[in-house]
């Protein structure tokens, strides 16, 4: 299995992924035209033919044996440049009066575009049949850090990830029901769909502009603020291990948390190192892969698990199969990370 940039020939495969992800996967709507333009935009980004603040780096996880797409992930170079990027910021207002013997703090949700210009890791999806022991999910998630480390100058200071919020057993978001539904004349899925298509101007037009005192929201809606869907918990944990933290920003529709970090502080970015490839036959390969390797080119970027760490002299020995998978030969550079 390997990560590579999406290519113009991947449209059918990507649409199949889009069909599988279904509702709730905002950034991958099942819309062929939209997906085609997404691929085109990604291709131009990897070819560095678009400005750095307008790049979507979209990757696929490929089973190089069968050529099948097993999943995808993406990095948005800078969010909020083309269309506004909104969050609620959970704030606190002190509410106090000595004469009234009153001291309370009131939580408020402020509409914010504070993350404008930040990078975003997004669109991670792994097909069910590829989940399990082979750490494909971690590969999809972490390959992006190696890419960002390698092309650090193409990215801004900060990176964020939006996590899916809480939905009840009927697929209803209590947060949406008690807040968004009062302002948007549509159901959650429609709002989500439009957002996924990048048609976000309606958000700014219809959103409440004044802060929301959370005390006016029912208990079940308040309980959703900053909480993730249970299926999203592993992804959140993985990001937290890299050093991303919740700083109080939540999704305006479902109240799910947005986690963030300075890119230079991300564990994988800090700890990844460069080494030179040696290709050797008869190498020991660990059962559970713990070393991640990525190439240093952009348009021909590849990332995959390798069976061992670097040698004492700083070189990395690869099997022929691993070298083929990464499309590297002896003497080429790789960025590696133990994880």
């Amino acid at each position: 299995m390997r990560i590579r940039p999406i290519a113009r020939g991947d449209l059918d495969g990507l649409q199949q992924l889009a069909q599988e992800t279904g509702v709730g996967f905002t950034s991958l709507p099942d819309n062929r035209e939209f997906l085609a333009s997404k691929i085109e935009s990604a291709a131009l980004a990897f070819e560095e033919r678009t400005p750095v603040d307008d790049r979507l780096y979209f990757f696929v996880l490929e089973d190089e044996e069968s050529g099948e797409l097993a999943g995808c992930c993406a990095i948005e170079g800078q969010v909020g440049r083309e269309v506004p990027f909104y969050h609620y910021r959970l704030g606190t207002l002190a509410h106090s009066s000595v004469q009234l013997d009153l001291h309370r703090t009131i939580d408020t949700l402020f509409l914010s575009s504070d993350h404008t210009g930040d990078a975003e890791v997004a669109s991670l999806y792994l097909r069910p049949e590829y989940r399990g022991g082979q750490r494909n999910g971690a590969l999809l998630s972490k390959a992006r850090w190696l890419f960002m480390a390698q092309f650090r100058d193409r990215f801004p200071d900060k990176v964020l990830a939006e996590m899916r919020g809480v939905f009840d057993e009927n697929g209803i978001s209590p947060f949406w029901k008690c807040l968004g539904s009062h302002f948007f004349p549509m159901d959650f899925n429609e709002a989500d769909r439009l957002t996924g298509m990048g048609q976000k101007s309606f958000i700014g037009e219809l959103m409440p502009k004044f802060p929301i005192y959370t005390t006016f929201l029912p208990e079940d809606a308040r309980a959703c603020i900053g909480q993730v869907h249970e299926h999203t918990r592993p992804a959140l944990e993985m990001l937290k291990k890299e050093g991303l933290r919740w700083e109080g920003y939540v999704d305006i529709f479902d109240g799910g948390p947005t986690v963030e970090a300075y890119i230079d502080d991300v564990r994988a970015v800090r700890l990844s190192t460069l080494c030179q490839v040696e290709v050797t036959a008869n190498l020991e390969t660990s059962e559970r892969p713990s070393w991640l390797a990525a190439t240093t080119g952009m348009a021909d970027f590849r990332a995959a698990w390798v069976g061992r760490g670097p040698n004492a002299d700083g070189t990395l020995a690869l099997t022929e199969e691993e070298a083929r998978r990464l499309n590297v030969g002896a003497g080429d550079s790789l960025r590696i990370l133990e994880t």
């Binding site: 106090s96 004469q99 009234l100 807040l179 009062h182 005192y213 929201l217």
Partner: peptide
């Protein structure tokens, strides 16, 4: 009662300063 004995604006000063959305009441 407190507002009558002290003053109402004294309490109002501690009221939430941002507009309230009726739909949330």
């Amino acid at each position: 009662h407190l507002a009558g004995v002290r003053s109402k604006s004294f309490i109002a000063e501690v009221m939430p300063q941002f507009p309230l959305y009726l739909s949330l009441l």
